[in-house]
Write a protein that binds this DNA or RNA. Structure first.
Lengths: 212, 212, 212, 212
DNA sequence: GATGAATGAGATTTCATTCAT
DNA sequence: AATGAATGAAATCTCATTCAT
């Protein structure tokens, strides 16, 4: 049943009924949010009877949790592999931007779900995502690298939390607000733009904190 | 962080029924999104009969538009006054961060509405907000200042769009993802942190693009 | 809105929607029990939209409570009026049998509801009914009359609780098991039989406890 | 009150799947009535798959019939042995009260099923139970004994049907309404109370119809 | 302007029953 | 004999909207 993960980590060819339901549900929740989603539509899309959904998941809410679970386990696998045997700060930062990019562009659904959960102050999703990120070791790695950089005077005496937060915002916050950015600065080739970011963001950030 | 109400462009002391409805509606839409919001609850909160809402606004959607309108007119007022006769790039950047901060923290509801609209690709709200931002002149000002900076070799030959976008992400994207950041880096005093950002962000960014 | 009570205490001509719903609901619950009853049928019978039922009562359970309430308030009025200015024990017993008879035959629905509630050990209905009966003063009156009868040796030294319980069983228990009795002893004229009981039961009981 | 299981006619140690299903079904039907009972719950309780129930019984209704059958065969065994060569009326009455007591208290479930069937005018269960009671010969015996009592003037000229019915109500009707009685007259020791009844009821009844 | 009552359409959920294995 | 998965039909409940007053 375990299958080799595709590049997106998304298991699209497993057609066990349960998987088919989760898949349809993800699409539906992504497109309409929780309340806007219709169990009927999810069922039809999955090619099953509505009752089947209640057989496998007990409620619409449960089904949503299952989708969130899947979305998160995906991001978990993504992050875990990247962690930390990067040679230096620059490589680590590149890794993060790349990972975030893949997360936000490669897994259709992660972004909208995250956006909506960000509007929900007591979101379990965010709790779990934060835990995943922390456990991946990336924030600690960055912090440590910056600290040693400061010690050897390669990096200025910046407020580390401000610096790391700013970097996260550049890396992941960008994707959240992308539709607004795209409206403000007409981006003609978004793919190239996203690709360029992978270099531009670490570059600006590193120069921003480096000693001169 | 507490601000004088009249300054927000939000007339909270007008007790006309219509205003009371819009106020409740805003709270409801902010808390539950469009589909999750209940006309009944809005009515009860406003202390009126449900039918009254249909008397004043013709539909739930209409009411939502009214709320969005209000939210946007607010952000418009916010941005309009600031425009651009700032002395230099650094001042301009500070102005932007400050404006964004006020926008996101000063008007309860702006953030959640924006988050949810960001999940909606054909959002009218984003169209209008982008227009407001563009019309405020700030992006053009920044761009121009960077361009002249490059010309006189004060600023490196960076990709301007990437730079401006990165700055925007740091400035406004941060607020969108704040609940996640707060979970990852335990921020004990968010008000002070937000205040510090007003200096830290332009500092990192400017150093990031300056020649050395 | 208050109207003169008919003989049954059942307000059948009040056609406010709420009343019509309760009336249909009573019929439905009586005929099918709680789980067997259908909100749809109740609505149709009351000539209203299903949603109307949820507008007036919040749930099916609530509606059931309302029916029970009505049934009980009815029995309450019934009993309250009869209380206790009966001249002697015999009159008091006749009063009880008459009241029980009216309750069980006059108010279509009391019996089935009571039967089903008797099968439910933690029934609120029974709690309330017991309270009504106790508060009517009848049990205390009977008990007191028997006690004084014993004192003056008109009545034998019987176990009073057993006696009163036995009488209650004869009076009200009979109606509960009537369908069984009717099957065992073919009763050709049930109305006359019920009428005769009003004398026969006190007669047997009184002779049963009298001294000789 | 605790009785030896084999005596009840209920084979509780037969672990065949079929028996386990009937046992769970009885508990379920007793607790929730027919419409309130859930096939799913019965299956789970019996430790089998829902489909198994449909394999053994064809439908929920069929299963209910099986339970009723079992309940009736039980009451049949209960009553069968007692028949009527009791020495005198008093002994016969005691026999009946004892039998009824055992019927109602000895077989968990008999009472609730009977109560609910009593609400159902065309109940097959009642038909069959009445037949069993009639066939046991007890009612005829009582009637005959009363008739001869009247002939020899040991018993008053009472309406025999009324008398027998009243006795039945005292004997069996009591159990039906017991939860109400217990609420009205706080009975602290129900076991003793039930035991005392076995003497009190025939005593009151006999004195009630005896000549003086 | 304002309300209580009403509604149609449709949402989520339940349940007895059957099918394929 | 036994199961997990599936289903059709229907149940309870919800909600934006309208009507009569």
């Amino acid at each position: 049943m375990k299958r080799i993960e595709t590049d997106t980590g998304l298991n699209t060819s497993d057609d066990s009924t349960r998987e088919r339901i989760v898949k349809s549900a993800r699409e539906e929740f992504v497109a309409h949010g929780f309340t806007g989603s219709r169990v009927e539509r999810i069922a039809k899309q999955a090619g099953v009877n509505k009752a089947m959904i209640y057989y496998h998941f007990k409620s619409k809410e449960n089904l949503y949790h299952a989708v969130v679970e899947e979305t998160l386990s995906h991001s978990f696998e993504r992050l875990h592999r990247r962690v930390s045997d990067t040679a230096n700060l620059e490589d680590a930062l590149r890794e993060i931007v790349t990972t975030h990019t893949e997360l936000m562009t490669g897994f259709e659904g992660f972004r909208p779900i995250m956006l909506r959960e960000l509007a929900n102050p007591s979101s379990e999703f965010l709790d779990r995502l934060a835990a995943i990120i922390v456990n991946s070791g990336l924030p600690a790695t960055i912090r440590r690298r910056i600290e040693s950089g400061i010690k050897v005077r390669a990096i200025r005496q910046v407020d580390i939390r401000q610096a790391v937060t700013a970097f996260m915002a550049m890396s992941i916050g960008y994707f959240l607000m992308a539709p607004l950015s795209e409206r403000i600065f007409q981006v003609s080739d978004p793919d190239k733009f996203t690709e360029d970011r992978k270099k531009a963001v670490p570059d600006i950030f590193l120069n921003g904190i480096r000693t001169r």
